[in-house]
Amino acid sequence: MGTDQTPAQVDHLPLNRSVRWRGLHLQTLEHCHIIANGRDTRIRGTIIGPDFGLFYRLKLDENGHPRTVKIERTDGKMLELFSDGAGGWSDDRAEPIPALRGCIDVDIWPTPLTNSLPIWRQDWQDDQPVSFAMAWIDATALSFKRSEQIYTRLDADHFRYQSTDFEAVLEVDADGIVTDYPGLFTRF
């Protein structure tokens, strides 16, 4: 199947569920809802921190590629990005973002939900690392940059996540959604 495996193809179509995490590092609470129907995947989430609140929305196409990312903080500031699904990104004025060229997935801080995006699409083999170019977004600052990340499936319930300066072993459920991100997030 290659890298075009969507959540609908991971043996749980349709996916229509809510998930909650407690952020251990920033002391956040998060609630998100995921709907995958084979045509697209829509994700809406809310994160409440000690000194911020924000909403995020993601729309993935039928291949599991992010197409729309919208983050709105409770102070009214907002970031909206669009992808062509092939690594081309633009802002809300349709201006290209060269720094994100080639990034297929998005990784939003501070949520573990976006760790599921590459997990959902990849046809995994245990102990075979796979590299991803990510559009990394700091939702608290509404800033973004390119991030090279490596995921390695250790077994059906665990993935090693590596970036330039960080490494963790993530525990996931049968839907590929993080249940435990040691030191950062735990599901409840």
Rank of each mutant, 00 (worst) to 15 (best):
M1E: 09
M1C: 02
T3S: 12
D4V: 12
T6I: 01
P7F: 00
Q9G: 11
V10S: 10
L13K: 01
P14I: 00
P14T: 06
P14F: 11
S18M: 10
R22T: 13
L26P: 00
T28Y: 06
E30F: 00
E30A: 03
H31W: 03
H33G: 00
I34F: 05
I35W: 06
A36F: 10
A36E: 14
N37K: 04
G38N: 14
G38D: 15
R39P: 00
R39T: 10
T41C: 03
R42A: 09
R42Q: 15
I43F: 14
R44A: 07
G49R: 02
G49H: 06
G49W: 07
D51N: 10
G53H: 09
F55Q: 13
Y56I: 08
Y56E: 09
L60E: 14
D61S: 05
E62I: 01
H65K: 08
H65G: 01
H65S: 12
V69Q: 06
V69L: 15
V69R: 12
K70F: 03
E72P: 00
G76V: 01
K77T: 08
S83D: 05
A86I: 02
A86G: 01
G87N: 11
G87T: 09
W89K: 10
D91R: 01
E95V: 08
E95C: 03
A99G: 00
L100A: 05
R101C: 06
C103Y: 04
I104T: 13
D105E: 11
V106H: 08
P110T: 05
P112Y: 04
P112C: 06
L113V: 15
L113F: 15
L113E: 12
L117V: 02
I119C: 05
R121W: 03
Q122V: 02
Q122I: 01
Q122A: 12
D126E: 14
D126L: 08
S131D: 14
A133R: 10
A135T: 05
W136R: 07
D138H: 07
D138K: 03
S143L: 09
S143F: 01
S143W: 02
S143G: 02
K145F: 01
R146A: 04
Q149V: 12
I150F: 03
R153E: 06
D155G: 10
D157I: 01
F159S: 07
Y161L: 15
Y161F: 15
Y161C: 07
Y161N: 04
Q162F: 01
T164Q: 13
F166H: 12
E167W: 07
E167Y: 00
L170N: 08
D173L: 02
I177E: 09
Y181P: 02
F185I: 13
F185K: 08
R187A: 15
F188L: 10
F188M: 11
F188D: 15
